[in-house]
Design a binder for these strands. Structure first.
Lengths: 134, 134
DNA sequence: CGGAATCCGTAAGGATACTG
DNA sequence: CAGTATCCTTACGGATTCCG
């Protein structure tokens, strides 16, 4: 049977998760999506709402989302001009899974922080294998 | 009432999602977690299963996961030595939300790809604002 | 107002070689 | 077998300036 040990390889290219990461893993993406969670929002408004983001990164983030079909751009050619962004229907389908991850973060992040403290502590070095999760 | 427009700012620091990203957004993390999905697995076995990963990145990824309390390391001090990794209970709680994201990727990624083609096409440039999602 | 363009520092990740 | 260590390249993101 020549069991070549090559049963189910895990690769970047065929992993749905990695593909999603390609879409939403950049630093500001999630925050920007959240800013659109309640409907249309103007560029400048997002710039103020998303704390610490620069014009460059906002534009870049929103462009990528638009290109990926998750966000729509509405232009009202007045002077000065009004540009609003909103999630497409495709974009809205992402909201649910993202919220679950966010929820996980809220529920478990403190445990992660504690684990880090444990790990970094010079004293309890040997306890890594034994308990830790209880 | 001085409506300072500063209602609900969205910031990196208070966003659970961003915290989770800090844990699982690096390139190989998800793949490595998947490699442990079915229980203990040896270092070398992961190296073979996770396509394209280098020793450096595997070690780095697995160390970070261990530090975050998501992965356990079991050492059997034989010669040569055996090192196995597995998810902790905390790590296993991440599996569910991750699977949902992965599922989203499987279901919707083709739409994303199509959107990109549309966006990049030099012809349909003007259709960005109008329809696209209908 | 809503960007685009440019410059620049850092850090993530790849390739390769060495080790207990 | 299971790593470390080192070098090196590139891409991400920040700061700033200019434009229709």
């Amino acid at each position: 049977m020549a069991h070549t040990t090559k049963r189910s390889d895990i690769s970047l290219s065929n992993c749905g998760y990695s593909k999603v990461l390609d879409i939403i893993s950049s630093k500001w993406t999630a925050l920007v999506i959240y800013a659109m969670e309640n409907g249309k929002i103007r560029y400048g408004e997002m710039l103020r709402r998303v704390e610490g983001i620069s014009k460059k990164m906002l534009t870049q983030t929103v462009r990528k989302l638009e290109r990926d079909g998750l966000v729509q751009r509405h232009i009202t050619p007045t002077v000065p001009l009004i540009v609003e962004y909103s999630l497409t229907r495709l974009g809205e389908t992402l909201l649910q899974p993202m919220k679950e991850l966010r929820q996980w973060g809220r529920e478990h992040y403190t445990q992660v922080v504690e684990a880090r403290v444990q790990y970094d502590s010079p004293y309890t070095k040997s306890s890594h294998e034994a308990d830790s999760v209880n």
